[in-house]
Nucleic acid binder design. Structure first.
Lengths: 250, 250
DNA sequence: CTCATCTATTTTGTCGACAATTTATCGATA
DNA sequence: TATCGATAAATTGTCGACAAAATAGATGAG
């Protein structure tokens, strides 16, 4: 009663990222590890799984129609990427980055994005610019359609796409992880009046890249990240656990 | 017949890295996941497990006295950190980074190390400087003892320690991964006349940090990385698989 | 003697079942 | 009635067993 020989990803692990699958019960057989991973990630990036959400193994196994061991593997991977946290004997939860962790993410993203921009400019490839323009258009379409979930996800994926197109698999991998974390951070700490500024900046950055203007592109990217970070409600942490500790100490 | 209640790492996962355990059979009961992971990593960093080495699950399970599932978990983690590669239905092997991947690692390390240096200088903590000095002394001791394995491992761990002391858990995690990859890269591509230059540079960097001289520290660090990268035999790749493909094409 | 093919062994992939811990529910007592 | 303790339910951690694939070895043909 073994299942069919699963189609598995090749060793290279060149993930076909950036796809817009929705999280849902697929009824039939079972999904592959990669599919489960991408569904959960997409759900987190679209803020459909809020930080702190319990991710029960049995529950996910039933949802995706696979064994619990499979879910467990995916959860372990997500935990290594710090997008979920594993409490021993308690289960997996969507991560709730602290303020300090949020700052660290932006601190690392700044030079990493600059690196990516330099690579893109150095390549000087029209196909790359075309794909970036297409993505920006998709962002604007989502914005026109008032699809907030798509807007948030596409905003993060713009940076992942940039890193992938830069040709650095390492930078792409890091950016993928940092973009996921950034989505969680935005969900936790963003003031409600947010998403108006960003897509326009993506468009400007893309234009600077198309012009081959490295200095301007880096400046715009840096300012873009600073804008996003500045929009965060950085002053005080979320009430729950930190206040609890402070209360116990006082 | 279950084992004792294992001492497991707490949720925070603040790994007590930088320990000098040797890879060996420990005879008795069984090691924890973290121990297995650190033993394998240390062995790789000390070049005791050369790139391309097959890491059989059953073999490792017997060596560490644990079940195969446990080994499998650790192997999956190492694969996510790209220090081993998983060939489907073939097993796990110590990674063999390509030339391009090697360049990517240094390309990312440069700004990341600069970030770490800035943080250290900003902290201006004497305890940090003391720990760095102690580490440099350990490096010099290993160098005096002609312990090449310890020299290589400690050289990488200096940078990990720097990142940890900088207070950024994210930077520390990334540096841990990049340092492991760098050890593999050095093993694959380094010319034989290598390790004389590095420890002295660590000492100089530490001194600049002690002086609070951020510009000098960053300059020394950048030059240090460039020296290491320049020592690599970058021109042609390793013979095996690339030549095979070339031969088939020709 | 070399190469191809078939068989046997080893190794990986996957799953279900059991043990241990945590969480929830219920009952007893002050 | 509220709180503490014990029992019951649910969930996670771990392992061994079976199936599929790949490698190694043996056998036979050219």
């Amino acid at each position: 009663m073994q299942k069919k020989t699963v189609k598995r990803r090749d060793a290279g692990a060149s993930a076909p990222s950036l796809q817009d699958e929705r999280l849902a019960n697929d009824g039939e057989g079972g999904a592959s590890d990669q599919e489960i991973y991408e569904r959960i990630i997409a759900s987190i990036m679209e803020h459909r799984l809020p930080p702190g959400t319990k991710l029960g193994e049995d529950k996910l196994a039933k949802i995706f129609g696979v064994s619990r061991a499979r879910v467990r593997q995916v959860l372990a991977r997500l935990a290594l990427e710090r997008v979920v946290v594993l409490h021993p004997n308690r289960g997996a939860f969507v991560a709730e980055p602290t303020i300090d962790e949020a700052r660290e993410v932006f601190e690392v993203r700044r030079p990493l994005e600059a690196l990516v921009v330099r690579r893109i400019v150095a390549k000087n490839d029209r196909a790359i610019i075309a794909r970036l323009h297409a993505h920006v258009e998709a962002e604007e379409a989502a914005r026109a359609a008032r699809d907030r979930r798509a807007i948030i996800r596409l905003s993060g994926e713009y940076h992942v796409l940039l890193a992938e197109l830069s040709g650095s698999t390492l930078a792409a991998r890091l950016m993928h992880e940092l973009a996921s974390l950034t989505c969680l951070i935005i969900f936790l700490y963003d003031a409600p009046s947010v998403p108006a500024c960003r897509d326009q900046e993506h468009s400007e950055i893309t234009q600077a890249l198309a012009d081959g203007d490295e200095a301007t592109a880096i400046r715009l990217m840096t300012e873009h990240l600073e804008h996003v970070e500045a929009c965060l409600d950085l002053s005080r942490g979320r009430p729950e656990e930190l206040d609890l500790e402070a209360a116990l100490a006082g």
